[in-house]
């Protein structure tokens, strides 16, 4: 398969190079450009394959010449070695003057400042709410609707009709809205 690939690449290179000359000779420049691109692409691919093949051979030769000096038992040595566990290393005294202490301090400082701000907001809201509500109620009282209705009902109009228009006692019973309407 590899030999077939090499053969195809060489045939493509020779054919595209030949046609490049032929098309230029015939003044067919567009065809020559297309075939020239194919020629260059094939040439680059072939040269890359040659270089890679040479590098592969060199690697094989180096590996075959070098003795295998790697000792066995890497897993056993790893398990036998003492495990070093040092959590929160940035809090150790020898690291306090380093810049990596800055981020944990910044995070902790932000948490504390946020708590203080929440406390202040809660206290201010609780103390101010009672006075604000009283002031608002007083302001709303001035523009509140009257306790009696603004217009008389049909029954009140009927009761204060022609025959009883001058009856003072009836006016007291009907209220101010009916009295205004009857005037």
């Amino acid at each position: 398969m590899k030999k077939l690939s090499w053969l195809l690449a060489v045939v493509a290179l020779i054919a595209s190079g030949t046609y490049l000359f032929v098309y230029i000779y015939r003044w067919e420049w567009h065809r020559a450009l297309l075939v020239g691109l194919l020629f260059v692409a094939t040439l680059v691919g072939l040269c890359s394959a040659l270089v890679l093949r040479r590098l592969g051979k060199l690697e094989e030769r180096v590996l075959s010449l070098a003795p295998d000096r790697r000792p066995d038992g890497a897993l056993e040595r790893l398990r036998a070695a003492p495990a070093e566990t040092r959590p929160f290393r940035w809090l150790s005294p020898d690291a306090l003057d380093r810049t990596h202490i800055f981020i944990p301090v910044l995070l902790g400082g932000g948490f504390v400042v946020s708590g203080i701000a929440w406390l202040i907001e809660t206290a201010a809201g609780n103390s101010a709410r009672a006075g604000v509500e009283q002031q608002l109620a007083a302001d709303l009282q001035a523009i509140a609707f009257p306790a009696t209705s603004l217009v008389p009902t049909d029954a009140e109009l009927l009761a204060g009709g022609d025959d009883f228009a001058d009856d003072a006692s009836l006016r007291v019973l009907l209220g101010p809205a009916a009295t205004r309407a009857l005037r």
Partner: peptide
């Protein structure tokens, strides 16, 4: 003539 022939036969 050669130039014209090449131009006409080309993939323009």
């Amino acid at each position: 003539q050669r130039e014209l022939k090449g131009c006409l036969r080309d993939t323009r």
